[in-house]
Simulated scan of single mutants.
Amino acid sequence: MTHGVSVRSATISDLLALMHLESLFAPGDRISVRSWRRFLTRKGCVQVAESGDGILGAVVVLVRKGGQAARIYSLAVDERAQGRGVGRALVEASLAFAALEGCKRLNLEVRPDNDPARTLYRKCGFVERGIKPDHYAGGTSALVMDRAVPQRAAEIFEQ
């Protein structure tokens, strides 16, 4: 992918690295070990971006059985990898996974004060659709963003 970064499906052997990435989030926003274990049993649900430096980021994408929309549940990029295209590579992997699952839309929630993430999502074609009150721990609202899922793989990378 970008700057020597590749994306692959995560495995249970990635659990410690995923927990390290979770330490970037506020305690109330972190994914539990139990949830990570459950997510890792779903093929393709968790994707990791890595390079020679190890795992640099991860994304969790959830799809309800028979659903038309996928959701980026969590996306984290290690501080040492910011600005290297890791976030974009993970968003592209999310779109590809959603397309494989037959989804028409990909949505997410993001903190209103997370300007780097909001900028990334806008560059990847996401549009702000509304506000979800009291979404995060501590009562912080979330911005809801979404975009269409390209049905052809080539369209994912045209953004």
Rank of each mutant, 00 (worst) to 15 (best):
A154Y: 09
G67N: 08
V77F: 01
C103Y: 04
A76C: 08
P112F: 08
G52F: 02
E79P: 00
G83H: 05
L24P: 02
S6M: 13
P116T: 07
R84A: 13
S6T: 13
T41C: 13
A81E: 03
L120N: 02
E155G: 15
F157Y: 15
P27L: 08
L18V: 08
D53V: 03
A81D: 03
S74L: 12
G87H: 01
E22T: 06
V61K: 06
A148Q: 13
G130R: 09
D113C: 10
T41V: 09
V77G: 01
V59H: 03
V77E: 00
G125R: 02
A49Q: 03
G85Y: 05
R34Y: 12
L21V: 07
R152V: 15
V33L: 13
D115T: 14
F126L: 12
E158H: 12
Y121N: 04
L120K: 01
R80Y: 08
L75W: 03
G83C: 03
L62N: 11
H3K: 13
Y121F: 08
L62Q: 13
L24S: 12
R34M: 09
V77Y: 00
A93R: 06
D29L: 01
H20M: 11
R118L: 09
R84M: 13
A98V: 02
S32F: 04
R30E: 03
A17F: 01
D134Q: 12
R80T: 14
E109L: 07
R105S: 07
R118A: 03
S94N: 07
A17D: 11
A117L: 07
L15Q: 07
R37M: 11
R37T: 09
A148E: 14
S94V: 07
A148G: 13
V77Q: 02
A153Q: 13
R84C: 12
D115N: 11
R122S: 10
R37G: 09
